[in-house]
Design a protein around this nucleic acid. Sequence first.
DNA 1: TTGATCGGAGACCATTATAGTCTCCGACCT
DNA 2: AGGTCGGAGACTATAATGGTCTCCGATCAA
Lengths: 157, 157
Amino acid sequence: MLKISKKADYALMALQHIATVQFGDVTPGRVVNTKEIAEEYNIPLELLAKVLQTLAKNALIESHNGPKGGYVLARRAHQITIAQILESIEGPLGITDCSHEKDGELCMQRENCHIRTPLLKVQDSIAQLLNSMTLQDMMGGTPLITIQSPAVQGVER
Amino acid sequence: MLKISKKADYALMALQHIATVQFGDVTPGRVVNTKEIAEEYNIPLELLAKVLQTLAKNALIESHNGPKGGYVLARRAHQITIAQILESIEGPLGITDCSHEKDGELCMQRENCHIRTPLLKVQDSIAQLLNSMTLQDMMGGTPLITIQSPAVQGVER
DNA sequence: TTGATCGGAGACCATTATAGTCTCCGACCT
DNA sequence: AGGTCGGAGACTATAATGGTCTCCGATCAA
């Protein structure tokens, strides 16, 4: 449950790779092409290509055409959040169908629904979590973050 | 992205309803049948039936056959977490495919994968969030919980 | 200036998950 | 005994996912 798609997975790997190459010590500033990433991580080339294209459309990376072309981060690693990456690929975060309901379109359950508000709280919490983590936190190859257990407040138990 | 299924949605609504009936002030202890819930929330009867059956199999509710039969919570509302409900319907929480990878089966990306560990951290955080909320928190019809933004520690920024 | 190398874009397809339906059975209360 | 309940399985339609194929345009370098 709550699984993210392969495409999103690939996006994270690719961006992590680009970030590491670009801001690492070995070949800083180097442009990375699709093939390199696909081979490094065993990702189907053409699928990865589409993923990178949408990331470019969403202004997370910049593309350079022609030989010696490829991709470069559009911003610095700490300015790209995990939420931005995932939403680029999978669309806006939405725990429930009614998360982004416009005023006109009510779901069939809405009139009586008692779970919408608490679920939106959960969603907010997840959004904050994903927004608090950046590409930077995924660089270095080693696990970097430790996240506190979200506290529950204001509930009478 | 990260949407939960309709079935899981229905499960939450149904359990919220049963809990409210059972521990509310109007008709405490009353058994609730599938039809009542389906009509109240505009849920397809037979789909809801299957949802409730799996919830019963997972020992979240108890079923009573025959006329005047129906379902009752198997435990008190504060002892049933949102995580338990969702996992009953959608299976174990797993942000990535490799979340529950057994020792034998490595994913194609594993040898070089730098995102697994941080993603597992995210997953843990979500798990804690969903485990910290119970059915009790969804009773009463009004939004009850407020969740702190998860802090990120141990990261050099 | 031409060709190899890159990304951009679209159609296309197979597989799986989802949401929902239908049918039959067995338990149970009155 | 009959109507009301849950239990269980097969079944279906639709959509999302993961992946492939093809063609195009930009660009650099020989």
